[in-house]
Design a binder for these strands. Structure first.
Lengths: 148, 148
DNA sequence: GCCGGACCATTTGTACACTAACGATCTTGC
DNA sequence: GCAAGATCGTTAGTGTACAAATGGTCCGGC
């Protein structure tokens, strides 16, 4: 019995890295990052753009709130905000009502930059989804949102 | 004309960060990373696991090939391999046929660890996709692969 | 046999991403 | 009022990621 067919190990041989969600997810993220870097046109990373875009949406906020709104760790947000501040795209002020808080706000230059590149940002999302049809994109996004 | 309806800016106001693929993609990746860390059970990162699992699949290879097989930069693969080597899970030898190459191979311990945790790795993929039905998972994975 | 171009590995520098620990500050319960 | 606990920001440490520069090694053509 079972002379010719090798017994498959329960696990090791059934596991193919290339079929695992996490692995493919990372590859798709990498592709998106590459598209972003090539297309954004103002030497910003996706994270930096996320912070600027969020500030444009919701206005000035504390670093903590900003971190939650952009799904970033507080420690991470600090680095990103520091770099944006170094480029004069955001300002940091103390909150008169709460001495713990450091309120981050877009500068005029930052505001202008967001508006100037919003179309490029949309094009990036579009190119990332380019391999899919319109119907597939809708399906994909809906499912992706469920996995958040 | 257009007295009551404000003219939407072409870009800025139409752009909602939370609906952009790249942003959601990152959130899903974060969730997967958290699930991975909690479930893998042997203090490995997803990258480190990817290298070990790939070596189990294809056998000993050069760092360069390993990088391509795991979708990692050469510089990144070096760091990952160094850490795995520090834990005794892989060995690095010179290729007798090509002095440029540094051949990475699983140690017995590394091989044992992969086999011991393959089931957990599958469970991680499963939990990541848990919010979806079986049919949705199939659809999602098929679409995700197209975006690679 | 050697020489230019391809390939491989390493190093350096920048930018995330998360954890843990810390001090400062606010708020609530009492 | 004030102590306990929650919140906010910062720092330090580890682990990806990618680009660019460097240097060693192989191979094909001559």
């Amino acid at each position: 019995m079972g002379a010719k067919i090798a017994k498959p190990k329960p696990g090791a041989d059934a596991y193919r890295l290339d079929e695992q969600v996490g692995f493919v997810l990372r590859q798709v993220s990498q592709r998106h990052t590459a598209i972003f870097a090539e297309r954004i046109g103002c030497d910003l990373t996706a994270m930096q753009w996320a912070v600027l875009a969020k500030l444009r949406e919701i206005g000035a906020t504390s670093q903590n709130q900003l971190g939650r709104a952009t799904a970033m760790d507080v420690a991470t947000v600090k680095g990103v905000v520091d770099r944006l501040r170094g480029r004069g795209l955001v300002d940091i002020d103390s909150d008169p009502d709460d001495a713990r808080r450091r309120v981050v706000a877009l500068t005029d230059e930052g505001m202008g930059l967001v508006d100037a590149h919003a179309a490029a940002a949309l094009a990036i999302s579009d190119e990332t989804l380019a391999p899919l049809t319109a119907a597939e994109r809708k399906t994909f996004l809906a499912l992706l949102l469920k996995l958040r």
